[in-house]
């Protein structure tokens, strides 16, 4: 089997004395779409941050394209082809919409550069309308579009979306899901964290459920539909 795009092996991460990740094995292949699920505080965001080197694990490994990047600096890790949309979006309020996009622009790890400013603006017509506005002037939905657009400007092989539609009005959330589907169809692998399982599950190939820092489920998303009790127990839906 070829190397996974990104893989973690028995990852243990602590915040002080609190043991947040307890031996996570996680894998994503090129082009795959994975839902990362679990209640609040189960370690989803911490797992994503540990993958990116924003939080350092105490034990275990992060491999990207088979290469050990556990101790590599964050910018080197994401330059392997990762676009990151954090919880809270991380828009730069002191930059304009255009500047938020342009500052992140680079070609992908293979030197490819399909995502240009023009293509991002075609995907998000709303951003085109607000191109000269400051980041601080955007609504939550616009910020999320900008954060996704900015991640695409790095021409990623893997897009990580933490809390993709949190706090967004249903109509805006629907628009975000449409965009996520569009991005998935271009062949970019995606890891999505979201609380709206009804919208999320039809979109993904595989689901991973975290409980107290451990993986309790890793399998096809469609199989979860048949296991209502299990899902209810671990996700509270």
């Amino acid at each position: 089997m070829p190397d996974a795009l990104l893989e973690t092996a028995s990852l243990h991460t602590y915040y002080g004395t609190s043991h947040v990740l307890r031996g996570i094995d996680f894998k994503i292949q090129p082009g795959e779409t994975v839902a990362l699920m679990g209640r609040n505080g189960m370690g989803k965001s911490t797992l994503l941050k540990t993958m990116l080197g924003l939080v350092r694990p105490r034990l275990g490994h992060v491999r990207i394209w088979g290469k050990d990047m556990t101790r590599a600096s964050t910018h080197k890790i994401v330059r392997q082809g990762i676009g990151y949309v954090p919880e809270g979006r991380g828009i730069f309020p002191n930059l304009s919409v255009r500047e938020n996009l342009v500052m992140a622009s680079r070609s992908g790890p293979d030197g490819g550069g399909h995502w240009t400013l023009q293509r991002v603006l075609e995907t998000f017509p709303r951003l085109q309308e607000r191109i000269g506005n400051g980041g601080w002037q955007l609504s939550g939905g616009e910020q999320q579009m900008l954060a996704i657009g900015r991640a695409l400007m790095t021409n990623p092989e893997l897009l990580i979306l933490d809390e993709a539609t949190e706090g967004l009005a249903p109509a805006i959330a629907k628009e975000i899901w449409r965009i996520v589907r569009e991005i998935r169809d271009t062949g970019i692998a995606t890891i999505i964290v979201d609380k709206n399982f009804a919208a999320l599950l039809p979109l993904v190939d595989r689901s991973v459920i975290l409980v107290k820092g451990e993986v309790v489920y890793d399998g096809p998303a469609k199989d979860l539909n048949a296991q209502r009790d299990f899902v209810h127990q671990h996700l509270g839906v």
Binding site: L54, S73, Y84, P86, G90, F92, L95, M103, A104, T154
Partner: peptide
């Protein structure tokens, strides 16, 4: 742009490569 972004959020700038 990077300098201004970095003055606001160091981690996010890193996370963009």
């Amino acid at each position: 742009m990077m300098i201004r972004a970095g003055s606001h959020d160091r981690n996010m700038v890193q996370a963009l490569g």
